[in-house]
Nucleic acid binder design. Sequence first.
DNA 1: GGCGTGAGCTGAATCGGTTGAGTCCCGCGC
DNA 2: GCGCGGGACTCAACCGATTCAGCTCACGCC
Lengths: 341, 341
Amino acid sequence: MSPLKRPTIADIAAAAGVSKGAVSYALNGKPGVSEQTRARILEIAARMGWHPSSAARALSDGRSGAIGLVVDRPAWVLGIEPFFMQLISGVESGLAATGTALLLQVTEDADAEEAAYRRWWGERRVDGVLLVDLREDDPRLALLAELGLPAVVVGHAGVPEAPSVWMNDGAAVREVLAYLAAMGHRRIARVAGPAHFVHTRERGEDFARSAHELGLSGVDCVHTDYSGEEGARATRRLLSGAARPTAVIYDNDVMAVAALSVTQEMGISVPGELSLVAWDDSELCRLVHPSLTAVSRSVPEYGRRAAAALLALVGGEAVPDIQLEPPVLVPRGSTAPAPRP
Amino acid sequence: MSPLKRPTIADIAAAAGVSKGAVSYALNGKPGVSEQTRARILEIAARMGWHPSSAARALSDGRSGAIGLVVDRPAWVLGIEPFFMQLISGVESGLAATGTALLLQVTEDADAEEAAYRRWWGERRVDGVLLVDLREDDPRLALLAELGLPAVVVGHAGVPEAPSVWMNDGAAVREVLAYLAAMGHRRIARVAGPAHFVHTRERGEDFARSAHELGLSGVDCVHTDYSGEEGARATRRLLSGAARPTAVIYDNDVMAVAALSVTQEMGISVPGELSLVAWDDSELCRLVHPSLTAVSRSVPEYGRRAAAALLALVGGEAVPDIQLEPPVLVPRGSTAPAPRP
DNA sequence: GGCGTGAGCTGAATCGGTTGAGTCCCGCGC
DNA sequence: GCGCGGGACTCAACCGATTCAGCTCACGCC
């Protein structure tokens, strides 16, 4: 079968007996044609299966009709980390109605990520980008500002250069610590993500504040790269130390799952001797035994709102920081009262 | 800071004192300019930080410089399934050198997936697509052929409409069954993916054939949607039946992990009373305790080769089916000799 | 009847590349 | 000395949309 020909507005114009301009007005809902003519043109366009050429549109109005997302995490972390796929699902649903496309790029390091932005900008491939995993003094913000590429920050507020979509982790941190404290836990540790991520630091500050308020001595913190392997190693170290914690909180679910198998290895009972809490809830947490108590936040919602905010920003609207519903604690089988000393 | 201006070939032409055409020849490595002039133009372009406008290029030569991937799996499966992110990582690395972009779309159902292809084709957004999860009599093949949109099938060979990148599962199936049989397993079951996927059926045929060759009575098969939940349910059913299997093979790692927690729930020892094998190896398999024996295949390699094949196809080359190294069995802690009857 | 007005449409420029059809000049062969 | 070939460029059309400046009516109004 010979491939279909793609109709252009010129074809429609010919079929309707009007000029290209009239067709353009009709198809874009702009004044300049009578309602009769508009209806006729719309009908013809639909019958011909017309779609606007994204290239032509991009060329004439300077909009590409696409947004970009660069994910700069090593492949082995990405594979298993549910966060990104859920985020992407959410972004898609925020984009779906508008017909905007999503460009995805997975990079090896921060330099490659910056190069990707430069390329997308130079090639006019995207109208804006979503920024995840903000770092301290993140050079990407300056770069994007220099390029004039609109961006929305996902995951934490108060960035002067760009609007953001965020959740207040503080309340959830407080909730988790209060819950553990109420069950008698006093020695609580945290296995965190990389220290250079802003959200890691901020969550750390939340932990310190809440611990102080609750009269806890503090929360020991170990940094990792989010991988199960490092999560397991950190857990072994914590559980082998002199003052073994009675509860550990993990910055992602993958590490919490890894920790669970470490406890089995070491013959430590969960939740009898040790309570575990995962930050970020995914099917993974319900899959393992005992199921993991988790801090649940709607990651797709993150994506959806961020996409919508970016579209508004690209459209020239002033976009404020958007705060989403804070994460909630979902208690499951991995937490229980602290063991008697 | 005011946004940078994006240089065009006209700017370069003006700076070099030549015409736009000459600049185009120079930048594309075509004859028509002297080596001196070419070098000068290249130098100016580099200094100005020029990138070709993807829109302009797409408009004039009909190529968008992008390929598309539609993933039609429910969001909750996607989140945790490592396969797709690994595939995407691989695709990126196959694309990286060429400057081709990747468009990703996550859809709710098959209709939305077809609509996505129609849109991409109509808008000339992609030069070709990667096709995963082929179904029996897959309507997508006819659609893409009708549209004339080049496609490469990932995951199984012998499709008349499009070249494919695949691995021979048969050898691995044989290896797994022989391994289990050698350890005395006779009642072996399989928890498979959806029956409508071609690769599910083909693997089933491989199981039947190998079972027969090895003198096994056959392999019981239960179909699921790949989710941990259904994997767990299927496992409970299998383990509650009269002739309980001594070994179960899962079509993905997520279900195998879910199964492991079912065995804990039910007090069945792994691998003492039951052996488990996961198809597809990811960090997940190493994370749990006992670690899961798995059939490992290089998913990123899949993506890389598929991307390369698609680029060749788009470039007008004749692309044959490409067979990759077959998957290999990686024995870990979840398999052991069958229990004495 | 003349004139302004605005709806409804046309024509052409424009975006930034690619490309085929010229143009010009230089060197070479006879 | 003339013609020819070809290297090095220039020019302009073209891809498919958007958009602005007209143009042409019909109509209302004084």
